[in-house]
Nucleic acid binder design. Structure first.
Length: 470
RNA sequence: GCCCCCAUCGUCCAGUGGCCUAGGACGCUGCCCUUUCAAGGCGGUAACACGGGUUCGAAUCCCGUUGGGGGUGCCA
């Protein structure tokens, strides 16, 4: 395959959502696989809805994902002259005409007619000249079919009689996406149009415009399946029209590598079934022909699993560095995390979970979780108090390092009556009261290591506090 | 309504006429390991939507039904 040229064409009307991210990824994958390029085109022709400041956010998220684009992003609004020139050509060739119907009139007639909604060709042969309030419409053929080969769907065919006379130029003179798209794709030398399934219906219009303009080259199309939510609805339509944004996941502590890897498994799968793997390998394996045509559910649980795997695979210092931006208490958190980093790393699924897990080491303002207190302390009866006392005694005297702390707690367990059938200390239960007293909860990082970091005095103070609470 | 598309475990992916008593992953779950929790090890749960064809043979091909999705804008 000659080096392909692809483009991702977001419109700055919202944040980058995960569906968009998946589209960027698949475009990027094709470009990388075949030594081509992926360009960016900002489709900002909708002056009403446009929010230019969002462009930077979208670019930043794409960068965060690590999916670099080639060249400078193109702004469609800078290219209006090309679009209007094409519009004039179409008008001159008689395949476009001016229409002065308002959107309200079009709708009203459709309703009155009782037939299908849409434009009825009212102004087709009125020979209107351009004037105030006139839009330029494309004269769609009444007979025949328009079809194209889609890399993921095969041949798709539309009856031309079902294609209405759509708008090329709005009455304010600004070209619509339909026109701008075709002109820009050709001008930018785009060979592959890889986009969401929602564009399938617009494709025959794209083709009709291109043919009318006399373009001899057609890009290859690939319409990716939509990403859906738990209700099987398009993700970007979720809630109040809010998409599930990439930013949301970034802020929640997901790694871009995990996100990208997970996204690659939606609508596609590696031939060998190995899902979690470096992007470089995916590049070598990816193929649009192998993309599934059916909608895919965006499963946050599975994404989270990927994320946990990626976190665990990090070098420990890298893990700390990546978690740092999520610390509200900066250096103080890092100081208590460092000695336990490896242990914490194996226990979190999100970077945002790191700080809460070591908070009990940073602050003395530890709240005892009631459920944990009941389950791991109260339920043990008298032995809980005995354990707390014995632990305090042993810990007060021992050497303050891991083995000694373990030994002290083992002895305390024996003294408090936590003994198993073999006569050994039953630490699974005995560590409970100490853990809750010190950390406030019944789950957390390994206890001995935690105590060493906490320090003798603070440990003893918490043991005493718990004792008096009993 | 009309147009287009889709249809394998709860979910994602594998399967492209015989290798399928349908495979992997997430989830859920049993056991083991274990200082809690994780992680790890070994198991389990669970699917070819339905009905017709074609064929010696169908999850795989064709038709229909049903179900789902996308579109139907002077949004992109």
């Amino acid at each position: 395959m000659p080096a392909p040229r692809l483009r991702f064409a977001p419109s700055p009307t919202g944040w980058l959502h995960v569906g968009g991210a998946r589209t960027v990824l698949f475009n990027w994958l094709v470009a990388r696989r075949y030594g081509g390029e992926m360009l960016l085109r900002i489709e900002d022709t909708d002056t009403e809805r446009n929010r230019p400041e969002l462009t930077d956010d979208i670019l930043a998220e794409i960068e965060w994902l690590g999916l670099a684009w080639d060249g400078e992003p193109v702004h469609q609004s800078d290219r209006l002259h090309l679009h209007t020139k094409a519009a004039s050509e179409l008008r001159a060739a008689g395949v476009a005409y001016w229409c002065d119907c308002t959107a309200e009139q079009v709708q009203a007639r459709a309703k009155q007619r009782g037939g299908p909604p849409g434009y009825d060709g009212h102004c087709r042969d009125r020979g209107l000249a351009q004037g105030p309030g006139t839009a330029l419409r494309f004269r769609a053929p009444d007979v025949g079919t328009t079809s194209f080969e889609d890399l993921v769907r095969g041949t798709v065919t539309f009856g031309n009689d079902k294609i209405e006379d759509f708008v090329l130029l709005r009455s304010n003179g600004v070209p619509t996406f339909l026109l701008a798209n075709v002109v820009d794709d050709v001008d930018m030398g785009i060979t592959h149009v890889v986009r969401g399934e929602e564009h399938v219906n617009g494709t025959p219009k794209y083709l009709l415009i291109g043919d009318a303009l006399g373009f001899d080259h057609r890009p290859v199309f690939a319409h990716l399946p939509v990403l859906v939510d738990e209700r099987r609805k398009k993700l970007s339509k979720r809630r109040d029209g809010d998409a599930v944004s990439v930013a949301e996941f970034r802020q929640a502590g997901y790694l871009p590598e995990a996100m990208v890897n997970y996204l690659a498994t939606l609508g596609w799968g590696p031939p060998d079934g190995v899902e979690i793997r470096p992007l470089a390998e995916i590049v070598g394996l990816f193929d649009l022909d192998a993309v599934t045509p059916s909608p895919a559910f965006f499963d946050t649980k599975k994404l989270t699993h990927f994320n946990a795997e990626y976190i665990r695979a990090l070098a420990t210092d890298e893990f700390v560095a990546r978690a740092r931006p999520f610390f509200a208490h900066g250096d103080a958190t890092e100081a208590v995390l460092s000695p336990l980093a490896r242990e914490v790393q194996e226990r979190v699924r999100l970077l945002s979970e790191v700080e809460p897990m070591v908070d009990f080491l940073r602050t003395d303002d530890v709240e005892i979780d009631e459920a944990s207190w009941q389950r791991s302390v109260v339920k043990l009866g008298d032995r809980a108090g005995a354990m707390l006392d014995a632990a305090a005694g042993g810990l007060a005297a021992c050497l303050w390092e891991r083995e000694a702390v373990e030994a002290a707690l083992s002895d305390a367990a024996l003294a408090a009556g936590f003994v198993n059938a073999e006569g050994n200390p039953q630490m699974s239960k005995a560590q409970g009261p100490v853990r809750v007293a010190v950390t406030g909860r019944s789950v957390g990082p390994p206890l001995y290591e935690s105590l060493v970091v906490l320090g003798r005095e603070r440990t003893l103070a918490r043991l005493r506090a718990a004792r008096s609470r009993l």
